[in-house]
Write a protein that binds this DNA or RNA. Sequence first.
DNA 1: TTCAATAATGTATACGTATTCATTCACGAA
DNA 2: TTCGTGAATGAATACGTATACATTATTGAA
Lengths: 338, 338
Amino acid sequence: MIYPKSGANGRIANSKEVAALAKVSQATVSRVFSGQAKIKESTRLRVLQAAEALGYRPNAIARSLTMNRSNLIAIVSIDIVNPHYNAMINKVANRIQEIGKEPLFFVSPEEKNLDEIFSQVLQYRVDAVIVLSAAVSSHMAAECEKVQVPVVVFNKYTINKNIFTVCTDNVQSGWLAANYLYEKGRKNFAFIGSSTFLGTSRDRLRGYKDCLYEKGIEDCSVLMVPYTYEDGRKAMREILKEKPDINAVFCAGDILALGAMDEAKYEYGLKIPKDISVIGFDNIDAASWAPYMLTTFEQQIDIMLDKTFDYLVKKLNGEEVSEGLKLFASKIVERNSA
Amino acid sequence: MIYPKSGANGRIANSKEVAALAKVSQATVSRVFSGQAKIKESTRLRVLQAAEALGYRPNAIARSLTMNRSNLIAIVSIDIVNPHYNAMINKVANRIQEIGKEPLFFVSPEEKNLDEIFSQVLQYRVDAVIVLSAAVSSHMAAECEKVQVPVVVFNKYTINKNIFTVCTDNVQSGWLAANYLYEKGRKNFAFIGSSTFLGTSRDRLRGYKDCLYEKGIEDCSVLMVPYTYEDGRKAMREILKEKPDINAVFCAGDILALGAMDEAKYEYGLKIPKDISVIGFDNIDAASWAPYMLTTFEQQIDIMLDKTFDYLVKKLNGEEVSEGLKLFASKIVERNSA
DNA sequence: TTCAATAATGTATACGTATTCATTCACGAA
DNA sequence: TTCGTGAATGAATACGTATACATTATTGAA
């Protein structure tokens, strides 16, 4: 006898149809596929054979409904073109799969309507939410708390004590950058930040200025520009136009730093690091390319991810875990631009 | 009377609870939120108010089950660190959201076990699958066909006539690259391809060689290396070691091209484009940076995405649409490296 | 006012699975 | 043989929604 390869009219066969073919109950089919219960080997084989014949695949949606657990983890991010940032998303997605979940991706054009996005996220009854480089409103935090959905914020300070937040210590990084430049004998400082990652940039600036203040330096040119190579160049142009004697620039992102370097080199004929030092942030691939050899900071992304997923796994298992802000030091990567 | 803010023990309230509070039937609540049926304004408000009070959000999982439509679209990709590629994923995710669906992300470490991934994908009863830069086995194509899940392959030739495939015309691009270099008076050709995107590279190589053959040039150094800057450098090093008179190199990716350029400049002291021409592919941001000004090819990604989503939307609406391979010309972006 | 027609809402069921509880089966000891 | 015991399976139900169908409320025309 020939059986149809799947359920009626192009539908995927369901466990009931498999059960019928294997002459068992639907419950038995379910047990075979969830792999928990004891099943006699002979029936197990019969069921698998029937399933194979019908092209059966368990319906994850239906399973989610009964189990009250979707196995989905939301990645919420703002729409940004930034190689370093994209690489991070990829890593997070990978980790999610490694713990047996599926990443459901939510992109928000801007940080403003993150609440709207969150509302969507919660409709999918995701098991957890990972927010990248964006702030979570306290309202949403409370909402998630209420419905027991763990939230993790990655790379953005959050005031909320109840949210697990993993972040590079930006203030410290800024301090270290200034200190490094100061030790190299620089005296005339500037800072180029990114309006795209404003909060992060501000923190780095704070540390930068703190350090300069400690050294007795009050003066520091500051520019916040969109996160692009061209804007890095423009920023450097403006800085050098205003104060041609600037000889130490910390950029809150490598792309800005590379633009800044090129402007100094190609338009102002400055030698790096002889005439001017530039330090970046993120250690993107291009930072190590021959024309740049940019000294920069590297975030300990992998360690941060370890902590994040340790937390998530424990939380999802109902274990007691501590929330709050976890800061990680960044590491300077010395090359030849400073 | 004070009502609890949500369902029992941290569960999100369901439509039944909202119905009870609003003194209507569950069906009415459903109708209010699906927004299709006519509802008296006064009851609509009462329901919304009750929902608000309970923190109700429709359960997308349950809805998927009854509607037999998950509103999920799978993005299947292989795990690759490549800025151009990551940007593409982002764009695809955005488009998916724009047509009111959610991107569910599946990453495969290698192309080999794509079938396994597909099995997962189908469990989630996704409405469609978008495969990026990876081949779909004919077995899986048949499987999807059978269960009515549209599959779109992006940026990879597929033999299967029944799959909607959108791809840049790589053979033509290779031909154009060779022709461009030939017109510039170059005579000694080389090609650096990527083993990471082997199929794509091979096609570009084919067009490249076809053109050279037409010009009566038989000789062409060919190297296939992993897709990194360092490997681009190494490849150039080997090529110049073997044949120091090579003066035209087409790289099947910008990252390789930038590495190749730097090796020629910094290690061999060659002037670009005076001594040697380099052409890349993808037109990544870095191609336009001052030290490079790389002449390269740009894929018409946005147009390709337009076509892809035109197809998907129509297909999901049950309209008749033609499958098969759709080729798109790439556009040369002239700068100063050739 | 009365009836028809339509709008608004309620009732009942299906979607595909997991799971509790009940039942049957197999097998060895007495 | 009979009984007990644990293993294997079946029957029934819940999960939260959408919707076909049934019912009630409302409106307008005569």
